[in-house]
C-alpha cells in the first residue's frame, strides 16, 4: 500500500455511481508527482468535481483505492462560499493551523505562537494588506476572497492542492492574476497542484500534464506540449475548437 515518496497522490481505478444511477466516475486512475501540476479538463458533468471530492476524501468512491502522501488542501470555484460570511478573514484563514493538529510548516516557523503575525504573513504572500484580517468576506472582491482561500490552502504546506475551477467565476483580468499567483507560489514553495477546469487554455497554462475527462472517464492523458498532436482524442479536439476559429 505504499507509494514512492516522489508521488503525492495515486488513484487507482476509481468508480462511483450516484444513487440516481448516474455513473460519475468510470475507472479513473491518476498520479500526481511532487512539484508538478496535473491538469484535468472537461465539460461540466464530466465527473471532474466528483473526482476532486473523492481525492479529498469528502466523498468515497465505490471501487478503487486512493493512496495519499501527506496533507491535501483545496481551493474551490465559488470564492463567496469558500469563506464563512459570518467569520472574520483571520478566522477563516487560520482554520487549518488553528486545529493544532498540523505543525506550523518551516516557512512559518519563525512566527510560532503568534497567530496574527502568521496570518499577516500569509496574506502578504497573496498580496493582500494585513489590515484585511479583521474584515468580513462581504467587504472583499471575488478575487481577494480567492486569494485568501489560496493563502489558507498553502498555510500548512500541503503535499497537494486540488484547485477545482479556481478562476471560473472571476473576471478575465482577475483570472489571469490568480493564475500568475498560483504559478509563482508553486515555484516558491515547490507545491504540487491538481488543476481542474473546463477552460482548456487555463489548464494548458498551468499544467505539465493534461488529462481530459468525458462522461466519468479519463479519455486521454498527455504532456501539455503535445496538445496539438494529431493523435488527440476527438473530445480534446472539440475543446480546442472552441478557442480556435
Amino acid at each position: 500500500m505504499s507509494i514512492p515518496s516522489e508521488t503525492v497522490i495515486e488513484a487507482e481505478r476509481l468508480s462511483k455511481r450516484y444513487k440516481c444511477g448516474h455513473l460519475a466516475l468510470d475507472d479513473v486512475s491518476l498520479t500526481v508527482k511532487k512539484g508538478e501540476c496535473l491538469g484535468i479538463a472537461g465539460e461540466s458533468g464530466s465527473g471532474k468535481s466528483t473526482l476532486a471530492r473523492c481525492l479529498l476524501a469528502i466523498e468515497s468512491q465505490d471501487i478503487g483505492k486512493i493512496m495519499r502522501n501527506g496533507t491535501m488542501q483545496a481551493v474551490f470555484q465559488n470564492p463567496s462560499a469558500s469563506l464563512n460570511p459570518k467569520l472574520k478573514v483571520i478566522d477563516s484563514l487560520m482554520e487549518p493551523l488553528d486545529g493544532g493538529k498540523i505543525a506550523y510548516p518551516s516557512f512559518l516557523s519563525h512566527f510560532r505562537e503568534d497567530r496574527r503575525k502568521t496570518a499577516e504573513f500569509l496574506l502578504k504572500l497573496v498580496d493582500i494588506p494585513g489590515s484585511y484580517l479583521d474584515a468580513y468576506p462581504h467587504q472583499l472582491s471575488g478575487g481577494q476572497k480567492q486569494r485568501i482561500s489560496i493563502a489558507r490552502a498553502i498555510s500548512v504546506e500541503p503535499s497537494l492542492i486540488i484547485l477545482d475551477e479556481p478562476t471560473s467565476s472571476l473576471d478575465v483580468s482577475v483570472q489571469a492574476n490568480i493564475l500568475n499567483l498560483l504559478k509563482d507560489l508553486q515555484e516558491d514553495f515547490g507545491l504540487s497542484y491538481l488543476f481542474i477546469s473546463h477552460d482548456l487554455a487555463a489548464v494548458r497554462f498551468m499544467s505539465q500534464r493534461i488529462a481530459i475527462m468525458q462522461r466519468g472517464k479519463i479519455v486521454e492523458h498527455f504532456a501539455s506540449e503535445e496538445l496539438f498532436s494529431e493523435e488527440r482524442h476527438p473530445c480534446t479536439q472539440q475543446l480546442i475548437a472552441v478557442f480556435e476559429s
Binding site: 498580496d127 481577494q144 492574476n177 497554462f205
Partner: peptide, 24 residues
C-alpha cells in the same frame, strides 16, 4: 488581451499589468 491564456506559445506568466503591492 494579455490576460487570456493562449493555447499555443504559452508564456510563462500572463502579462496583466498587475504589480505586487498595488491596490487590488
Amino acid at each position: 488581451l494579455a490576460s487570456v491564456p493562449p493555447l499555443r506559445n504559452v508564456p510563462h506568466r500572463l502579462n496583466t499589468g498587475y504589480k505586487k503591492e498595488e491596490a487590488i
